[in-house]
């Protein structure tokens, strides 16, 4: 067991460094630099406390002391070691000032905007890379995701770049392209509704040349479709969602029509006269806009059942 501990200690880099004389000297110099930083930081904090260098009870020493400590340590390290020690004293000063300023000196300190702001500033001084990353990357990413503002900015910068450097793209063509992008269309050539055994006619009057044997009455079918309002808001920025909405509406039309054709076929109809199609918005509900496609017409039986389309 003891041998195991010894072996582990030997593997530690500090232990190895202390064994070697040259390395030991460098290590002591590093410790010296950190000490200088700590001393400068403590002196700064004491001066700030003594001179009451504060605003609304919040002392600037909380920020200045870690900064000065780190700066002093870096200067010393550059002079005696010609390399950085990582501003360890700034972190130590952060701990010292927080413990003294928030716990020992002011145990009744409440949580308010000033306290929260000071914690952020102190953290920023102690862990600049981590806090800056959070502020720049995370916070900005949330703003960008919610508002889409950065996407618009980069898009306009890219457009400007294209306009300046790509001489082939004329401004007029760009405007035309932008205009055409506002209108979306969807073409589905695969689905053939006219090949399902029911002739669908939109005319109000029944054609004289079609021999109608029987009127089966009025037929109606509907299909409800919905889309989220959030997507609708976004669609001002992102056009692809509008295409999705169009496909959604088109699919609803097809489904309603299929339902109607099934009803007609079940009743022995082979034609539909005065076919009408309406899309009605039923209003928003639970964050979604609900619409329905309604198709109605008069079901009929044509004489020629085999091929109603050819007269």
């Amino acid at each position: 067991m003891l041998n195991k501990i010894k072996r582990k200690l030997n593997d530690l880099s500090i232990y190895k460094r202390l064994k070697d004389e040259e390395e030991r000297k460098v290590f002591l110099k590093e410790l010296g630099c950190i000490d200088i930083g700590i001393i400068v930081g403590i002196v700064t904090y004491v001066i700030c406390l003594y001179t009451h260098f504060d605003i609304y009870g919040w002392n600037f020493g909380l920020v200045l002391s870690p900064l000065f400590a780190g700066y002093a340590e870096s200067l010393a390290a550059k002079r005696y070691l010609e390399e950085s020690t990582g501003a360890i004293s700034a972190f130590i000063l952060f701990l010292i000032t927080v413990v003294y300023g928030f716990i020992i000196s002011n145990p009744t300190l409440g949580f308010n905007v000033i306290t929260a702001g000071s914690i952020v500033i102190i953290l920023q001084a102690a862990f600049p890379i981590a806090v800056n990353y959070f502020l720049i990357a995370t916070v900005l990413a949330i703003i960008s995701h919610v508002t889409g503002v950065f996407k618009k900015i980069t898009h306009s910068i890219w457009n400007l770049y294209e306009k300046i450097f790509n001489k082939k793209t004329k401004l007029k063509e760009k405007i035309e392209e932008k205009k055409s992008n506002r209108v979306h269309s969807f073409y589905d050539g695969k689905l053939d509704m006219n090949n399902l055994g029911v002739l669908l006619l939109t005319m109000e009057d029944s054609p004289k040349d079609l021999n109608i044997l029987e009127y089966k009455g009025i037929y109606e079918s509907s299909h409800i479709f919905s889309f989220k309002r959030r997507e609708e808001i976004k669609s001002g920025i992102e056009d692809s969602l509008e295409k999705e909405l169009l496909i959604c509406a088109k699919n609803a039309e097809d489904k309603a029509l299929l339902k109607l054709i099934k009803q007609l076929k079940a009743d022995g109809c082979n034609g539909l006269l005065n076919m009408n199609m309406a899309i009605e918005t039923l209003g928003p509900s639970m964050g979604e806009n609900i619409s329905q496609v309604v198709i109605r017409g008069t079901g009929v039986v044509f004489k020629e059942k085999e091929d109603v389309s050819s007269l």
């Binding site: 506002r182 209108v183 979306h184 269309s185 969807f186 073409y187 509704m193 006219n194 002739l199 669908l200 006619l201 939109t202 005319m203 109000e204 009057d205 029944s206 054609p207 004289k208 040349d209 079609l210 609708e232 808001i233 669609s235 001002g236 056009d239 509008e242 295409k243 909405l245 169009l246 509406a249 088109k250 039309e253 029509l257 076919m275 199609m277 109603v308 389309s309 050819s310 007269l311």
Partner: peptide
Amino acid sequence: TSTLENKTIVKYHGLVNGESLIGSNIYK
């Protein structure tokens, strides 16, 4: 119209439709 005057309809092919959508743009 339901018919074409002075024309003879030789075949009814059935329903044809087309859809397009004008996008909502809050800024516009």
